[in-house]
Design a protein around this nucleic acid. Structure first.
Lengths: 150, 150
DNA sequence: CTAGTCCCTATAGCGGCTATAAGGTCAAGC
DNA sequence: GCTTGACCTTATAGCCGCTATAGGGACTAG
């Protein structure tokens, strides 16, 4: 009945390396091993990894996920703080959206600042001398730290 | 008239380490040095660094900035591709916004899924068994890769 | 002459993976 | 039995754009 890492990977749409990474990070338990040293998983692991991946899809970081897993592993009677965690999360997402909207407006203005004529680029000029982008005074909005895999 | 790295840092709201990093990356030239080895900068460097920081604020990565600087350093007659770069950039920002809006909706649904009663958390349940967040099938939306400095 | 502020280089770390190297294991087909 | 190929293992380095740390030198004011 137990299965190897490739199957867990397929079932959860996660790369095997990532699974081993989660194990090293303590998000997944150390699994049983076959005689040859292959990791062996069960349905329970599928569920746990699903949980982790859902959390990642919701933009939670590994520290937050660790907290949630700890709760899941030993449920306390009150879970109000989980709602609060989600709440805080929503607030962060809203901030990001607002920041990106401002950025977009600024980029649109930038795009319009060059006529493409007389061997001189207004965009370059604006970038050198124009007003700073108001969206992210402290360089908060780091887009594209990694490009979406294409 | 030339000034040291601290002054350049202050003038452009950039950390000295970051300036040295840009130099290593080839975005800033190797500056003159004092007898003691201190870097010496001019107004031109302020302008160039300003340019770089503006680009960063607009969410451009260092590779894109390198392209723009190359153009700035040796202006060609036609600069249509710069407009296109900005255009592509706007498209990416719009994608991000859309992705975040979907995420937000999903988080709000999640928040509503727990009554906080009978020692059992609906949010945890939804995360383990609910539908995946549609916003980022391939985990495209990596929020918070670095938290905004606080 | 000391304290404090600036500057220098070099190296490691952040998050969440991804990629690469170099090899072991197992089943199927010849 | 022997090869081929798909799978598994560990270990290490790299991605990006910095940030932090260690360990030191230079310069100024009191």
């Amino acid at each position: 009945m137990p299965f190897k890492i490739g199957e867990l990977a397929k079932a959860t749409d996660t790369q095997a390396v990532t699974i081993r990474f989660y194990e090293k990070e303590g998000l997944l338990r150390q699994p049983e091993r076959t005689g040859a040293g292959y990791r062996l998983y069960s349905e329970e692991d599928v569920e746990r990894l699903h949980f982790i991946r859902r959390c990642r899809q919701h933009g939670m970081n590994l520290a937050e996920i660790r907290e949630l897993l700890a709760f899941r592993d030993s449920p306390a009677p009150s879970c109000g703080w989980i709602g609060e965690l989600v709440e805080r999360h929503i607030a962060k997402v809203e901030e990001q959206i607002a920041s990106l909207e401002t950025l977009k407006a600024h980029l649109q203005a930038l795009r319009g600042s060059c006529s493409g004529e007389n061997g001189h680029c207004g965009i370059i000029d604006s970038l050198a001398h124009g007003a700073p982008c108001p969206c992210c005074e402290g360089l908060h909005c780091r887009l594209e730290r990694r490009p979406p895999q294409e």
